[in-house]
Each structure stands twice: as C-alpha cells, then as structure tokens.
Simulated assay, not measured.
Amino acid sequence: MRQKVTILVLDDHPVVRQGVVAMIQAYGEGFHVVGEACSPDEGLAKAAALRPDVVVTDLIFNGSSRNGIDVIRELQMQGVPSRCVLITANMQGHYMVEAFKAGAKAFLYKESDAREYVKAIEAAFEGMTYFPPELPQELDRWSRLPRLTPSEERLMPYVAKGLTSKEIAREYNHLDSPKVIEPRTIDQHKSNIKQKFAIDSMGGLVAFAIKYCDDNNLDYRNLQIQAKRSLLGF
C-alpha cells in the first residue's frame, strides 16, 4: 500500500484555502493535508517543521512583499525536501518560467477541478512535472513580447506612484549616493518604454506601470523612496 502523501496548503484567502483543502482530501486518495498557512512566513515555518511531501502554494499574497515563487525558492535554499505545486488565477509566461526555475514541479489554475489538482499533486510527489496544456503556447507568446530592461523595471513603481522625472531624480540625489541621476536620464527610460510598448501618453504610461506592478507583485502604493535607495540604481 502506498504511503500517505502529506500536503501543506498556502493561500491568504481563507475560503479559497479551505476549499482547496476540502477538495484535496475528498478526491485525493491517500492524500493527507497536514497543515495550512495564510502567508509566506507562516508557510515557510510550517514547511520546515512539518516537512510535507508536497507544498501547494498560491502565487500572490496580498500585503506581502514575497510571493509563491519566493516560497518555493526559499524552501530549496533551506533544504526542505517538499515538492511544490504553484497555483494562480492568472496564467502568465514569466511567472511560469520563474516558477520552474525556482523548483516548482507543477503549475495550474487556481480554479482547476479536483482531477487537475490530484494530477498535479501526484506528479509533484513522483518528482515529475505537470502543467496546463496551453503552457507551451503561452510561453511561446510570452517569449515574443517586448521586455523591460532592469533599469526600466526599477522605474515602474515610481511611475505608478505618479512621480515626475524631476521628483524621482530629486529624491534619489538627496541620498548619499556617489552617482547623480539627471531627470533627462529618467525621461529617456520613459521614452524607451513608451516606444517599446506603443504607449502614446503619460497617462497611458502610468496605467501601464500600475498594471505592471500589480502583475509582478511590486508594491508602489506604500512606496517610501528614501527607504528604497537600491531600487533607484538607474
């Protein structure tokens, strides 16, 4: 008789988390949920203590600077042997690439049915991979999209916050930094982004930055520029 597959479920929405737990226990023969967590910190602590066979983690945790990919990466770094399944409401190529690079074994939609959850968990437990059938097409589409450079990406939270190039440069240059940033340097980054993504106005750029930050779990709403010196290394 096969051993029980022990599972830890991480999701910050209690109703969703409890629904996933109930579904796994009802339809996963030989599955046993040994713990639940509502945040990356709690999940990492419970995974280290319980050492489940499989960790099922949500991608985005509201109010946390870390996401499910960070959880997977840290479990690998800490030597926790759990195999990971990442669930998300939005299938996006860059998340899938990063998830598998971090060590995820399976990737599926949060709203998948019980059969898909069972397949994903079983695959992860066996050390195999599992992903939705549209993954190759999504990765191909994603690979063809334009990309932000590291400097452009670092600019996104500040644009989303509504700061002008002069305001960003002024805040940065107030810091004890050996490098002085000119507003025209930031203007050039903005111009490059607008051209790359066919954005025709500053309002459009701000909207793009907000969506980019939301999609990539970058906190711009609570941004404290003086405390974010490292992010301004343009």
Rank of each mutant, 00 (worst) to 15 (best):
P133K: 08
S143Q: 13
E138P: 00
K166F: 13
S151H: 14
Y158S: 04
E182W: 13
L135Q: 09
L139F: 07
Q137Y: 09
D187N: 15
Q188N: 15
M128A: 12
R154M: 12
Q188M: 10
S165M: 11
D140G: 01
E182Q: 12
I181Y: 07
T149H: 02
A169T: 10
R147D: 07
E153V: 03
Y158W: 06
V159L: 10
T129M: 08
D187F: 08
K166T: 10
P136D: 13
T185S: 14
L148G: 03
R141F: 09
P133I: 11
R144W: 02
S143T: 14
S165G: 08
H174N: 12
H174S: 11
D176I: 10
E171I: 02
W142Q: 04
R147T: 11
L163M: 11
L155M: 12
A169N: 04
T185M: 11
G162I: 07
P146I: 04
P157K: 06
I186Y: 08
E153D: 06
M156Q: 03
T149A: 01
R141S: 11
P150A: 02
V159C: 02
M128W: 07
D187I: 01
K179F: 09
V180N: 04
L175E: 10
Y172F: 15
L148C: 08
Q137G: 14
L145D: 07
P146D: 14
G162P: 02
P178I: 09
P178M: 09
L148W: 04
K166A: 07
E171C: 11
Y158A: 04
P157M: 05
H189K: 03
I181F: 08
V180P: 00
I181S: 05
R147G: 01
T185H: 14
L155T: 04
S165K: 10
Y172T: 10
T164M: 04
R141Q: 10
S143E: 14
T149S: 15
S151F: 10
P183F: 14
L135F: 08
H174A: 14
V159D: 01
K190R: 15
I168P: 07
P132E: 12
Q137V: 13
H189V: 09
D176A: 12
G127I: 08
P183H: 12
P150G: 01
P178V: 04
K190N: 07
P150L: 02
I168S: 05
R154F: 02
E138N: 09
H174L: 15
M128G: 01
P178S: 05
P178H: 02
R144P: 00
R147Q: 15
L155R: 03
R170C: 03
D140P: 00
